[in-house]
Design a protein around this nucleic acid. Structure first.
Lengths: 257, 257
DNA sequence: ATTCATTGCGTCGTTATGACACAATAATAC
DNA sequence: GTATTATTGTGTCATAACGACGCAATGAAT
Protein backbone atom coordinates (compact mmCIF):
# COMPACT_ATOMS: atom_id res chain seq x y z
CA UNK A 1 0.00 0.00 0.00
CA UNK A 2 1.30 3.44 -0.90
CA UNK A 3 2.02 5.90 1.89
CA UNK A 4 3.03 9.50 2.46
CA UNK A 5 1.71 10.82 -0.77
CA UNK A 6 1.99 14.61 -0.82
CA UNK A 7 -1.10 16.77 -0.51
CA UNK A 8 -0.62 18.17 -3.96
CA UNK A 9 -0.28 14.72 -5.47
CA UNK A 10 -3.37 13.57 -3.59
CA UNK A 11 -5.47 16.43 -4.84
CA UNK A 12 -4.31 16.48 -8.42
CA UNK A 13 -4.00 12.76 -9.07
CA UNK A 14 -6.07 11.28 -6.23
CA UNK A 15 -8.87 10.23 -8.53
CA UNK A 16 -6.43 7.82 -10.16
CA UNK A 17 -6.04 5.69 -7.03
CA UNK A 18 -8.77 6.66 -4.55
CA UNK A 19 -12.46 5.82 -4.60
CA UNK A 20 -14.50 8.82 -5.65
CA UNK A 21 -16.91 10.52 -3.24
CA UNK A 22 -16.10 8.35 -0.23
CA UNK A 23 -13.89 9.17 2.73
CA UNK A 24 -13.55 7.96 6.29
CA UNK A 25 -13.04 9.70 9.61
CA UNK A 26 -11.83 8.26 12.89
CA UNK A 27 -12.83 9.20 16.41
CA UNK A 28 -9.93 7.90 18.47
CA UNK A 29 -10.77 7.64 22.14
CA UNK A 30 -8.20 7.55 24.92
CA UNK A 31 -8.39 7.82 28.69
CA UNK A 32 -5.97 9.88 30.75
CA UNK A 33 -6.08 11.61 34.12
CA UNK A 34 -9.67 10.59 34.60
CA UNK A 35 -10.73 12.26 31.38
CA UNK A 36 -11.96 10.84 28.10
CA UNK A 37 -9.82 12.22 25.28
CA UNK A 38 -10.03 12.32 21.49
CA UNK A 39 -7.12 12.58 19.10
CA UNK A 40 -7.48 15.66 16.87
CA UNK A 41 -5.50 17.26 14.07
CA UNK A 42 -4.76 20.97 13.81
CA UNK A 43 -5.28 21.81 10.16
CA UNK A 44 -2.91 23.83 8.04
CA UNK A 45 -4.42 27.04 6.70
CA UNK A 46 -7.61 26.70 8.65
CA UNK A 47 -8.19 27.79 12.19
CA UNK A 48 -9.80 24.55 13.29
CA UNK A 49 -9.26 21.08 14.62
CA UNK A 50 -10.39 18.02 12.72
CA UNK A 51 -10.79 14.28 13.09
CA UNK A 52 -8.09 12.15 11.47
CA UNK A 53 -9.43 10.84 8.22
CA UNK A 54 -8.49 9.67 4.80
CA UNK A 55 -9.49 8.21 1.50
CA UNK A 56 -9.90 4.64 0.36
CA UNK A 57 -7.73 3.10 -2.32
CA UNK A 58 -9.68 1.70 -5.22
CA UNK A 59 -9.06 -1.90 -4.24
CA UNK A 60 -8.82 -1.40 -0.49
CA UNK A 61 -11.35 -2.61 2.05
CA UNK A 62 -12.76 0.37 3.97
CA UNK A 63 -11.94 -1.39 7.21
CA UNK A 64 -8.32 -1.70 6.09
CA UNK A 65 -8.25 1.95 5.14
CA UNK A 66 -9.43 2.89 8.62
CA UNK A 67 -6.77 0.65 10.15
CA UNK A 68 -4.18 2.35 7.97
CA UNK A 69 -5.27 5.84 9.04
CA UNK A 70 -5.21 4.76 12.67
CA UNK A 71 -1.75 3.30 12.35
CA UNK A 72 -0.42 6.44 10.67
CA UNK A 73 -1.84 8.75 13.38
CA UNK A 74 -1.09 6.68 16.47
CA UNK A 75 1.73 4.34 15.53
CA UNK A 76 -0.40 1.47 16.80
CA UNK A 77 -1.23 -1.85 15.18
CA UNK A 78 -4.08 -4.11 16.33
CA UNK A 79 -6.40 -1.29 17.27
CA UNK A 80 -9.96 -1.85 18.38
CA UNK A 81 -11.98 -0.26 15.64
CA UNK A 82 -15.67 -0.09 14.94
CA UNK A 83 -17.65 1.45 12.13
CA UNK A 84 -20.58 3.38 13.59
CA UNK A 85 -22.26 5.59 10.98
CA UNK A 86 -22.16 7.07 7.52
CA UNK A 87 -22.60 10.80 7.17
CA UNK A 88 -24.15 11.58 3.85
CA UNK A 89 -25.86 14.95 3.84
CA UNK A 90 -25.11 16.78 0.59
CA UNK A 91 -24.53 19.99 2.55
CA UNK A 92 -21.56 18.54 4.41
CA UNK A 93 -19.24 19.09 1.45
CA UNK A 94 -18.82 22.82 1.10
CA UNK A 95 -17.00 23.64 -2.10
CA UNK A 96 -16.12 27.22 -1.25
CA UNK A 97 -14.52 26.23 2.00
CA UNK A 98 -12.35 23.64 0.37
CA UNK A 99 -11.21 25.78 -2.51
CA UNK A 100 -10.25 28.51 -0.05
CA UNK A 101 -8.09 26.15 1.96
CA UNK A 102 -6.44 24.83 -1.14
CA UNK A 103 -5.70 28.31 -2.40
CA UNK A 104 -3.92 29.13 0.84
CA UNK A 105 -1.96 25.95 0.34
CA UNK A 106 -0.89 27.24 -3.04
CA UNK A 107 -2.72 24.54 -4.93
CA UNK A 108 -4.92 25.41 -7.87
CA UNK A 109 -7.64 22.96 -8.76
CA UNK A 110 -10.20 22.76 -11.49
CA UNK A 111 -13.85 23.33 -10.62
CA UNK A 112 -14.51 19.67 -11.38
CA UNK A 113 -11.57 18.28 -9.41
CA UNK A 114 -12.52 15.08 -7.58
CA UNK A 115 -11.83 16.63 -4.19
CA UNK A 116 -14.47 19.27 -4.71
CA UNK A 117 -17.19 16.74 -5.44
CA UNK A 118 -19.75 15.73 -2.87
CA UNK A 119 -18.32 13.28 -0.33
CA UNK A 120 -19.90 10.92 2.10
CA UNK A 121 -17.78 9.80 5.00
CA UNK A 122 -17.76 6.57 6.95
CA UNK A 123 -17.29 7.10 10.68
CA UNK A 124 -15.14 4.75 12.76
CA UNK A 125 -14.38 4.94 16.43
CA UNK A 126 -11.30 3.46 18.03
CA UNK A 127 -10.37 2.63 21.60
CA UNK A 128 -6.67 2.94 22.36
CA UNK A 129 -4.35 2.89 25.34
CA UNK A 130 -3.41 6.53 25.82
CA UNK A 131 0.03 5.70 27.17
CA UNK A 132 1.20 3.76 24.12
CA UNK A 133 0.15 6.28 21.47
CA UNK A 134 2.58 8.57 19.66
CA UNK A 135 0.42 11.25 18.06
CA UNK A 136 1.62 11.98 14.54
CA UNK A 137 0.22 14.80 12.36
CA UNK A 138 -0.61 13.99 8.76
CA UNK A 139 0.74 16.00 5.81
CA UNK A 140 -2.18 18.43 5.91
CA UNK A 141 -1.89 19.17 9.63
CA UNK A 142 0.48 21.09 11.85
CA UNK A 143 -0.30 19.23 15.07
CA UNK A 144 -1.87 16.08 16.45
CA UNK A 145 -3.03 16.23 20.04
CA UNK A 146 -5.31 14.66 22.61
CA UNK A 147 -8.24 16.87 23.55
CA UNK A 148 -10.60 16.49 26.46
CA UNK A 149 -14.07 15.47 25.28
CA UNK A 150 -15.69 18.26 27.26
CA UNK A 151 -13.40 20.99 25.92
CA UNK A 152 -14.34 20.50 22.29
CA UNK A 153 -16.68 23.19 21.03
CA UNK A 154 -16.34 23.29 17.30
CA UNK A 155 -14.58 21.21 14.68
CA UNK A 156 -13.92 21.17 10.96
CA UNK A 157 -16.99 20.68 8.76
CA UNK A 158 -19.42 18.29 10.47
CA UNK A 159 -16.76 16.62 12.60
CA UNK A 160 -18.32 17.77 15.85
CA UNK A 161 -21.49 16.00 14.85
CA UNK A 162 -19.48 12.90 13.96
CA UNK A 163 -17.77 13.02 17.34
CA UNK A 164 -21.07 13.37 19.20
CA UNK A 165 -22.51 10.44 17.29
CA UNK A 166 -19.45 8.34 18.11
CA UNK A 167 -19.82 9.11 21.79
CA UNK A 168 -23.50 8.30 21.71
CA UNK A 169 -22.75 5.01 19.97
CA UNK A 170 -20.03 4.15 22.45
CA UNK A 171 -22.51 4.66 25.30
CA UNK A 172 -25.06 2.47 23.56
CA UNK A 173 -22.54 -0.28 22.95
CA UNK A 174 -20.93 -0.03 26.36
CA UNK A 175 -21.93 -3.53 27.40
CA UNK A 176 -20.61 -5.09 24.21
CA UNK A 177 -17.29 -3.32 23.83
CA UNK A 178 -14.00 -3.91 25.67
CA UNK A 179 -13.59 -0.35 26.95
CA UNK A 180 -11.73 -1.49 30.03
CA UNK A 181 -9.16 -3.58 28.24
CA UNK A 182 -8.60 -1.15 25.38
CA UNK A 183 -8.64 2.19 27.18
CA UNK A 184 -6.71 1.23 30.32
CA UNK A 185 -3.18 -0.08 30.78
CA UNK A 186 -2.77 -3.82 31.44
CA UNK A 187 -2.81 -3.31 35.18
CA UNK A 188 -5.29 -0.89 36.67
CA UNK A 189 -7.06 -0.13 39.92
CA UNK A 190 -10.74 -0.42 40.68
CA UNK A 191 -11.15 3.37 41.11
CA UNK A 192 -9.55 3.86 37.69
CA UNK A 193 -11.97 1.45 36.05
CA UNK A 194 -14.85 3.11 37.82
CA UNK A 195 -13.74 6.57 36.71
CA UNK A 196 -13.63 5.29 33.15
CA UNK A 197 -17.25 4.19 33.36
CA UNK A 198 -18.25 7.39 35.10
CA UNK A 199 -16.58 9.53 32.46
CA UNK A 200 -18.13 7.74 29.53
CA UNK A 201 -21.54 7.68 31.13
CA UNK A 202 -21.17 11.18 32.55
CA UNK A 203 -22.68 9.96 35.79
CA UNK A 204 -21.52 9.13 39.33
CA UNK A 205 -21.61 5.51 40.45
CA UNK A 206 -21.53 4.04 43.94
CA UNK A 207 -18.02 2.78 44.63
CA UNK A 208 -19.04 -0.36 46.51
CA UNK A 209 -21.88 -1.41 44.26
CA UNK A 210 -19.69 -0.84 41.21
CA UNK A 211 -17.00 -3.14 42.58
CA UNK A 212 -19.51 -5.83 43.49
CA UNK A 213 -21.06 -5.78 40.01
CA UNK A 214 -17.80 -5.70 38.07
CA UNK A 215 -16.33 -8.54 40.09
CA UNK A 216 -19.54 -10.57 39.76
CA UNK A 217 -18.97 -10.70 35.99
CA UNK A 218 -15.90 -12.78 36.77
CA UNK A 219 -13.55 -11.49 34.07
CA UNK A 220 -11.38 -9.33 36.31
CA UNK A 221 -8.69 -10.80 38.51
CA UNK A 222 -7.11 -9.09 41.45
CA UNK A 223 -3.31 -9.13 41.48
CA UNK A 224 -1.11 -9.37 44.55
CA UNK A 225 0.35 -5.90 43.93
CA UNK A 226 -1.02 -2.55 44.97
CA UNK A 227 -0.52 0.85 43.37
CA UNK A 228 1.73 2.67 45.85
CA UNK A 229 2.67 6.32 45.52
CA UNK A 230 -0.68 8.04 45.60
CA UNK A 231 -1.80 9.55 48.87
CA UNK A 232 -3.97 7.43 51.16
CA UNK A 233 -4.54 3.73 51.09
CA UNK A 234 -2.90 1.90 48.20
CA UNK A 235 -5.50 0.25 45.97
CA UNK A 236 -5.06 -3.26 44.56
CA UNK A 237 -4.18 -3.71 40.91
CA UNK A 238 -6.40 -5.77 38.64
CA UNK A 239 -6.16 -7.20 35.16
CA UNK A 240 -8.58 -8.73 32.69
CA UNK A 241 -9.08 -12.41 32.05
CA UNK A 242 -9.31 -11.79 28.33
CA UNK A 243 -10.96 -15.07 27.46
CA UNK A 244 -13.77 -14.56 29.94
CA UNK A 245 -14.01 -10.85 29.11
CA UNK A 246 -14.48 -11.55 25.43
CA UNK A 247 -17.10 -14.18 26.08
CA UNK A 248 -19.04 -11.92 28.44
CA UNK A 249 -19.00 -9.07 25.91
CA UNK A 250 -20.34 -11.31 23.16
CA UNK A 251 -23.44 -11.94 25.23
CA UNK A 252 -23.34 -8.34 26.43
CA UNK A 253 -22.79 -7.46 30.07
CA UNK A 254 -26.07 -7.94 31.88
CA UNK A 255 -27.86 -4.97 33.35
CA UNK A 256 -27.57 -1.25 32.93
CA UNK A 257 -25.49 1.44 34.59
CA UNK B 1 -37.16 14.14 -7.62
CA UNK B 2 -37.16 12.03 -10.78
CA UNK B 3 -38.83 8.63 -10.70
CA UNK B 4 -39.34 5.57 -12.85
CA UNK B 5 -36.26 5.96 -14.91
CA UNK B 6 -35.79 2.91 -17.13
CA UNK B 7 -33.02 0.43 -16.45
CA UNK B 8 -31.31 1.24 -19.70
CA UNK B 9 -31.39 4.95 -18.96
CA UNK B 10 -30.07 4.31 -15.45
CA UNK B 11 -27.16 2.27 -16.67
CA UNK B 12 -26.17 4.37 -19.65
CA UNK B 13 -26.75 7.84 -18.19
CA UNK B 14 -26.84 7.13 -14.45
CA UNK B 15 -23.50 8.75 -13.82
CA UNK B 16 -25.04 12.06 -14.87
CA UNK B 17 -27.45 12.17 -11.92
CA UNK B 18 -26.36 9.53 -9.38
CA UNK B 19 -23.44 9.60 -6.97
CA UNK B 20 -20.67 7.32 -8.17
CA UNK B 21 -19.69 4.17 -6.26
CA UNK B 22 -22.37 4.47 -3.58
CA UNK B 23 -25.64 2.60 -3.32
CA UNK B 24 -28.06 1.70 -0.56
CA UNK B 25 -29.97 -1.43 0.35
CA UNK B 26 -32.98 -1.81 2.59
CA UNK B 27 -33.91 -4.68 4.86
CA UNK B 28 -37.64 -4.21 5.32
CA UNK B 29 -38.98 -6.15 8.28
CA UNK B 30 -42.61 -7.08 8.73
CA UNK B 31 -44.46 -9.43 11.09
CA UNK B 32 -47.21 -11.79 9.96
CA UNK B 33 -48.63 -15.07 11.19
CA UNK B 34 -46.11 -15.17 14.01
CA UNK B 35 -43.20 -14.94 11.60
CA UNK B 36 -40.67 -12.25 10.96
CA UNK B 37 -40.65 -11.43 7.24
CA UNK B 38 -38.41 -9.50 4.89
CA UNK B 39 -39.47 -7.87 1.64
CA UNK B 40 -37.42 -9.23 -1.26
CA UNK B 41 -37.25 -8.65 -4.99
CA UNK B 42 -37.06 -11.41 -7.59
CA UNK B 43 -34.51 -10.22 -10.10
CA UNK B 44 -34.94 -10.31 -13.84
CA UNK B 45 -32.42 -12.47 -15.65
CA UNK B 46 -30.91 -13.84 -12.48
CA UNK B 47 -32.17 -16.76 -10.50
CA UNK B 48 -31.99 -14.99 -7.14
CA UNK B 49 -33.78 -12.76 -4.70
CA UNK B 50 -32.35 -9.43 -3.63
CA UNK B 51 -32.89 -6.66 -1.15
CA UNK B 52 -34.61 -3.55 -2.46
CA UNK B 53 -31.98 -0.93 -3.10
CA UNK B 54 -31.11 2.04 -5.16
CA UNK B 55 -28.76 4.84 -5.97
CA UNK B 56 -28.44 8.31 -4.52
CA UNK B 57 -29.05 11.41 -6.58
CA UNK B 58 -26.13 13.79 -6.62
CA UNK B 59 -27.82 16.31 -4.35
CA UNK B 60 -29.95 13.91 -2.35
CA UNK B 61 -29.45 13.06 1.30
CA UNK B 62 -28.80 9.33 1.68
CA UNK B 63 -31.54 9.15 4.28
CA UNK B 64 -33.97 10.66 1.79
CA UNK B 65 -32.86 8.21 -0.85
CA UNK B 66 -33.61 5.33 1.51
CA UNK B 67 -37.03 6.82 2.28
CA UNK B 68 -37.66 7.09 -1.44
CA UNK B 69 -36.73 3.45 -2.07
CA UNK B 70 -38.94 2.38 0.81
CA UNK B 71 -41.87 4.39 -0.47
CA UNK B 72 -41.50 2.97 -3.96
CA UNK B 73 -41.41 -0.63 -2.73
CA UNK B 74 -44.05 -0.48 -0.02
CA UNK B 75 -46.28 2.48 -0.86
CA UNK B 76 -45.71 3.73 2.68
CA UNK B 77 -44.73 7.16 3.91
CA UNK B 78 -43.41 7.86 7.43
CA UNK B 79 -41.51 4.62 7.73
CA UNK B 80 -39.28 3.81 10.65
CA UNK B 81 -35.85 3.62 9.10
CA UNK B 82 -32.41 3.20 10.55
CA UNK B 83 -28.99 3.09 8.97
CA UNK B 84 -27.05 0.20 10.42
CA UNK B 85 -23.85 -0.50 8.45
CA UNK B 86 -21.79 0.20 5.36
CA UNK B 87 -20.59 -2.72 3.35
CA UNK B 88 -17.37 -1.84 1.64
CA UNK B 89 -15.36 -4.88 0.70
CA UNK B 90 -13.87 -4.48 -2.77
CA UNK B 91 -14.86 -8.06 -3.57
CA UNK B 92 -18.55 -7.36 -3.19
CA UNK B 93 -18.76 -5.81 -6.66
CA UNK B 94 -18.24 -8.60 -9.14
CA UNK B 95 -17.86 -7.21 -12.59
CA UNK B 96 -18.41 -10.45 -14.48
CA UNK B 97 -21.65 -11.12 -12.72
CA UNK B 98 -23.03 -7.72 -13.54
CA UNK B 99 -22.04 -7.70 -17.16
CA UNK B 100 -23.67 -11.10 -17.59
CA UNK B 101 -26.95 -9.87 -16.18
CA UNK B 102 -26.86 -6.81 -18.34
CA UNK B 103 -26.17 -8.85 -21.44
CA UNK B 104 -29.26 -10.95 -20.76
CA UNK B 105 -31.15 -7.72 -20.43
CA UNK B 106 -29.97 -6.75 -23.87
CA UNK B 107 -27.91 -3.84 -22.64
CA UNK B 108 -24.37 -3.36 -23.82
CA UNK B 109 -22.09 -1.35 -21.57
CA UNK B 110 -18.53 -0.15 -21.84
CA UNK B 111 -15.92 -1.72 -19.60
CA UNK B 112 -15.61 1.58 -17.74
CA UNK B 113 -19.34 2.16 -17.33
CA UNK B 114 -20.12 3.60 -13.87
CA UNK B 115 -22.24 0.61 -12.92
CA UNK B 116 -19.31 -1.74 -13.28
CA UNK B 117 -17.13 0.23 -10.89
CA UNK B 118 -16.61 -0.79 -7.32
CA UNK B 119 -19.61 0.09 -5.13
CA UNK B 120 -20.04 0.41 -1.43
CA UNK B 121 -23.56 0.14 -0.10
CA UNK B 122 -25.21 1.72 2.90
CA UNK B 123 -27.53 -0.65 4.74
CA UNK B 124 -30.83 0.52 6.21
CA UNK B 125 -33.40 -1.50 8.04
CA UNK B 126 -37.06 -0.59 8.23
CA UNK B 127 -39.91 -1.69 10.47
CA UNK B 128 -43.30 -1.68 8.80
CA UNK B 129 -46.83 -2.82 9.48
CA UNK B 130 -47.23 -5.89 7.27
CA UNK B 131 -50.94 -5.31 6.75
CA UNK B 132 -50.59 -1.85 5.22
CA UNK B 133 -47.85 -2.66 2.72
CA UNK B 134 -48.46 -3.09 -1.00
CA UNK B 135 -45.32 -4.83 -2.34
CA UNK B 136 -44.29 -3.28 -5.65
CA UNK B 137 -41.47 -4.67 -7.84
CA UNK B 138 -38.97 -2.20 -9.25
CA UNK B 139 -38.13 -2.01 -12.96
CA UNK B 140 -35.34 -4.57 -12.64
CA UNK B 141 -37.49 -7.15 -10.84
CA UNK B 142 -40.29 -9.49 -11.73
CA UNK B 143 -41.71 -9.86 -8.24
CA UNK B 144 -41.72 -8.30 -4.80
CA UNK B 145 -42.70 -10.61 -1.95
CA UNK B 146 -42.49 -11.13 1.78
CA UNK B 147 -40.20 -13.99 2.75
CA UNK B 148 -39.89 -15.70 6.07
CA UNK B 149 -36.59 -14.87 7.75
CA UNK B 150 -35.84 -18.53 8.35
CA UNK B 151 -36.52 -19.61 4.78
CA UNK B 152 -33.86 -17.40 3.24
CA UNK B 153 -30.80 -19.35 2.21
CA UNK B 154 -29.02 -17.34 -0.39
CA UNK B 155 -29.40 -13.89 -1.88
CA UNK B 156 -27.94 -11.72 -4.61
CA UNK B 157 -24.32 -10.68 -4.08
CA UNK B 158 -23.65 -10.08 -0.36
CA UNK B 159 -27.29 -9.40 0.47
CA UNK B 160 -27.56 -12.40 2.76
CA UNK B 161 -24.73 -10.99 4.81
CA UNK B 162 -26.46 -7.61 4.85
CA UNK B 163 -29.67 -9.22 6.02
CA UNK B 164 -27.89 -11.13 8.78
CA UNK B 165 -26.20 -7.96 9.95
CA UNK B 166 -29.53 -6.13 9.98
CA UNK B 167 -31.09 -8.84 12.10
CA UNK B 168 -28.15 -8.81 14.48
CA UNK B 169 -28.41 -5.03 14.78
CA UNK B 170 -32.14 -5.18 15.37
CA UNK B 171 -31.55 -7.62 18.22
CA UNK B 172 -28.89 -5.37 19.69
CA UNK B 173 -31.12 -2.32 19.46
CA UNK B 174 -34.25 -4.09 20.62
CA UNK B 175 -34.60 -2.00 23.78
CA UNK B 176 -34.23 1.26 21.89
CA UNK B 177 -36.45 0.66 18.89
CA UNK B 178 -40.27 0.73 18.63
CA UNK B 179 -40.68 -2.77 17.27
CA UNK B 180 -44.09 -3.18 18.86
CA UNK B 181 -45.57 -0.02 17.49
CA UNK B 182 -44.06 -0.32 14.02
CA UNK B 183 -44.44 -4.03 13.36
CA UNK B 184 -47.88 -4.63 14.85
CA UNK B 185 -51.26 -3.13 13.99
CA UNK B 186 -52.63 -0.38 16.25
CA UNK B 187 -54.53 -2.87 18.39
CA UNK B 188 -52.87 -6.12 19.33
CA UNK B 189 -53.03 -8.86 21.92
CA UNK B 190 -50.47 -9.74 24.54
CA UNK B 191 -49.70 -13.13 22.92
CA UNK B 192 -49.08 -11.35 19.61
CA UNK B 193 -46.63 -8.94 21.19
CA UNK B 194 -44.92 -11.81 22.95
CA UNK B 195 -44.64 -13.81 19.73
CA UNK B 196 -43.01 -10.78 18.12
CA UNK B 197 -40.34 -10.68 20.79
CA UNK B 198 -39.90 -14.44 20.67
CA UNK B 199 -39.48 -14.40 16.91
CA UNK B 200 -36.93 -11.62 16.86
CA UNK B 201 -34.99 -13.10 19.75
CA UNK B 202 -35.47 -16.67 18.51
CA UNK B 203 -36.19 -17.75 22.05
CA UNK B 204 -39.21 -18.80 24.13
CA UNK B 205 -40.37 -16.47 26.90
CA UNK B 206 -42.58 -17.17 29.89
CA UNK B 207 -46.05 -15.88 29.15
CA UNK B 208 -46.78 -14.57 32.66
CA UNK B 209 -43.40 -12.98 33.30
CA UNK B 210 -43.47 -11.36 29.88
CA UNK B 211 -46.81 -9.75 30.60
CA UNK B 212 -45.68 -8.54 34.01
CA UNK B 213 -42.55 -6.96 32.59
CA UNK B 214 -44.14 -5.33 29.56
CA UNK B 215 -46.94 -3.85 31.65
CA UNK B 216 -44.47 -2.63 34.28
CA UNK B 217 -42.94 -0.35 31.65
CA UNK B 218 -46.24 1.51 31.67
CA UNK B 219 -46.50 2.38 27.98
CA UNK B 220 -49.13 -0.20 27.03
CA UNK B 221 -52.78 0.30 27.81
CA UNK B 222 -55.37 -2.41 27.90
CA UNK B 223 -58.53 -1.67 25.91
CA UNK B 224 -62.05 -2.75 26.85
CA UNK B 225 -62.30 -4.95 23.72
CA UNK B 226 -61.16 -8.52 23.25
CA UNK B 227 -60.12 -10.30 20.07
CA UNK B 228 -63.00 -12.74 19.43
CA UNK B 229 -62.96 -15.30 16.68
CA UNK B 230 -59.93 -17.38 17.54
CA UNK B 231 -60.48 -20.64 19.32
CA UNK B 232 -60.34 -20.62 23.12
CA UNK B 233 -60.48 -17.68 25.48
CA UNK B 234 -60.58 -14.27 23.80
CA UNK B 235 -57.53 -12.19 24.71
CA UNK B 236 -57.73 -8.49 25.54
CA UNK B 237 -56.57 -5.95 22.99
CA UNK B 238 -53.87 -3.45 23.88
CA UNK B 239 -52.43 -0.31 22.33
CA UNK B 240 -49.36 1.84 22.88
CA UNK B 241 -49.25 5.10 24.78
CA UNK B 242 -46.93 6.57 22.19
CA UNK B 243 -45.68 9.42 24.33
CA UNK B 244 -44.61 7.13 27.15
CA UNK B 245 -43.32 4.51 24.69
CA UNK B 246 -41.08 7.03 22.97
CA UNK B 247 -39.73 8.30 26.25
CA UNK B 248 -39.00 4.81 27.55
CA UNK B 249 -37.17 3.89 24.32
CA UNK B 250 -34.98 6.97 24.51
CA UNK B 251 -33.66 5.76 27.85
CA UNK B 252 -33.76 2.21 26.58
CA UNK B 253 -36.02 -0.42 28.11
CA UNK B 254 -34.38 -1.63 31.26
CA UNK B 255 -33.20 -5.20 31.55
CA UNK B 256 -32.55 -7.94 29.04
CA UNK B 257 -34.67 -10.65 27.50
C1' DA C 1 -73.39 -29.84 28.44
C1' DT C 2 -68.67 -31.20 28.19
C1' DT C 3 -64.05 -30.78 26.60
C1' DC C 4 -59.85 -28.37 26.05
C1' DA C 5 -56.43 -25.10 24.82
C1' DT C 6 -55.65 -20.62 26.00
C1' DT C 7 -55.86 -16.50 28.83
C1' DG C 8 -55.94 -13.65 33.28
C1' DC C 9 -54.11 -13.19 37.58
C1' DG C 10 -51.79 -14.54 41.02
C1' DT C 11 -47.88 -16.87 44.63
C1' DC C 12 -43.30 -18.04 46.33
C1' DG C 13 -38.44 -18.40 46.91
C1' DT C 14 -34.15 -16.60 45.10
C1' DT C 15 -31.25 -13.19 43.31
C1' DA C 16 -29.94 -8.56 42.19
C1' DT C 17 -29.85 -3.76 43.51
C1' DG C 18 -29.41 0.63 46.01
C1' DA C 19 -28.13 2.85 50.22
C1' DC C 20 -25.15 2.97 53.74
C1' DA C 21 -21.68 1.60 57.96
C1' DC C 22 -17.17 0.70 59.54
C1' DA C 23 -12.53 -0.83 59.78
C1' DA C 24 -7.87 -0.89 57.38
C1' DT C 25 -4.28 1.62 55.21
C1' DA C 26 -0.65 4.80 53.42
C1' DA C 27 0.95 9.31 52.63
C1' DT C 28 1.14 13.73 54.94
C1' DA C 29 1.13 17.11 58.68
C1' DC C 30 2.55 18.04 63.08
C1' DG D 1 7.12 9.09 65.66
C1' DT D 2 2.42 9.98 66.17
C1' DA D 3 -1.81 11.88 64.71
C1' DT D 4 -4.51 13.19 60.83
C1' DT D 5 -7.03 12.45 56.73
C1' DA D 6 -8.74 10.88 52.58
C1' DT D 7 -9.25 6.80 50.42
C1' DT D 8 -9.86 1.78 49.93
C1' DG D 9 -11.62 -3.06 51.38
C1' DT D 10 -15.44 -5.44 53.07
C1' DG D 11 -19.92 -6.22 54.69
C1' DT D 12 -25.02 -5.45 56.00
C1' DC D 13 -29.90 -4.71 55.25
C1' DA D 14 -34.22 -3.68 53.25
C1' DT D 15 -36.37 -3.58 48.90
C1' DA D 16 -37.11 -4.53 44.13
C1' DA D 17 -36.69 -7.55 40.30
C1' DC D 18 -36.81 -12.07 38.40
C1' DG D 19 -37.69 -16.98 37.26
C1' DA D 20 -40.63 -20.85 37.94
C1' DC D 21 -44.96 -22.27 38.55
C1' DG D 22 -50.48 -22.94 40.09
C1' DC D 23 -55.15 -22.37 39.17
C1' DA D 24 -59.45 -20.56 37.90
C1' DA D 25 -61.99 -18.20 33.97
C1' DT D 26 -63.22 -18.18 29.27
C1' DG D 27 -65.15 -19.34 24.80
C1' DA D 28 -65.01 -22.08 20.58
C1' DA D 29 -65.42 -26.86 19.27
C1' DT D 30 -67.39 -31.42 20.18
Amino acid sequence: MKRDISIKETILRGSDFFMPSVSLDCVIFGFHENELKVLLLRMKNADTWALPGGFIYKKEDIEDAATRVLRERTGLHDIFLRQFHVFGQPSRSEKKFHSNMLRKDGIKVNKDNWILQRFITVGYYALVDFATVTPEPDPSSVACEWKDIHSIQELFMDHKHILDTALYTLRMQLNHVPIGHKLLPKKFTMPELQKLYETILDKKLDRRNFQRRILSFGFIKRLKETRKGGAHKAPYLYSFDLKKYKKALEEGLQGGW
